[in-house]
Design a protein around this nucleic acid. Structure first.
Lengths: 123, 123
DNA sequence: GGTGAGCGCTTGAGATTGTCAAGCGGTCTA
DNA sequence: TAGACCGCTTGACAATCTCAAGCGCTCACC
């Protein structure tokens, strides 16, 4: 692996973390509410369980997500954001704002003005 | 591949775009100033030229980066952010803010928090 | 005037990362 | 008693990213 000079810059490291595939999607989903494993997979939409497991593992080690086993049998787990995780709301909101402004793509904005909530994930 | 319901959500699409490896790094570098190709590679630190070329190509097609050929011989090109690209500053700033706050990593700050073990809820 | 370093990329081969399908043991709903 | 769902894991495969090298060319230097 490369050990470039940038690696002591926290911003660089954060980007490194956040750009892993599905990470931002996962955080966005979790900002809405805690989720179980398969439930989260569905909320995110398109991840396969292998990758999801790997991401959650990393995010937990990084202190962004916390995992609570509510019961082993029947299996029930809860993934939710830690304080550090919730703090990423600012990032998601910034993306959200940019998207609405510059990402018209296929749609004229469909659902505008429904929620008094500040922008976070809704399906 | 997947034609999920999510794919008409601009936020989902934006995340898809921004999480491609090196994209955020590239934008961050370009927020500082326009760059030539190799110069940009150095500023980003760690990208290889193959990937960088692919990213710039995509970002240009998405209208985030603009490429200006200043001279073909000697070769000199300038990559810079479009208005839509500059608008991503908010995203980078949000990441920046989060990083400073929650990305201790190398710092002797790792006291409380950071619980690797899944906490088991009993009720 | 010849050497070397720089420019903006591209190529083909290899390493890394992400995906798919299937499945384990179990419980809960019908 | 059948089926759907739970939280994952495995092993085989595909997509993505990386490496080293190099093309044609110009410039700064000795």
């Amino acid at each position: 692996m490369h050990a470039h000079d940038h690696s002591l810059c926290p911003v660089y490291d954060s980007i490194e973390l956040l750009q892993e595939k599905w990470v931002l999607h996962i955080i966005r989903a979790l900002l809405g509410a805690p989720h179980g494993f398969n439930e989260l997979a569905r909320a995110v939409g398109g991840v396969n369980t292998t990758t999801l497991a790997a991401r959650l593992d990393r995010l937990e080690r990084e202190g962004i997500v916390s995992k609570t086993i509510e019961s082993t049998m029947p299996p029930r787990t809860r993934y939710e954001l830690t304080d550090a995780g919730v703090a990423l709301q600012g990032v998601i909101e910034a993306i959200d704002a940019w998207a609405r402004e510059h990402m018209r793509r296929c749609q004229a904005d469909a659902v505008a003005t429904a929620a008094p909530e500040p922008t976070v994930a809704s399906h």
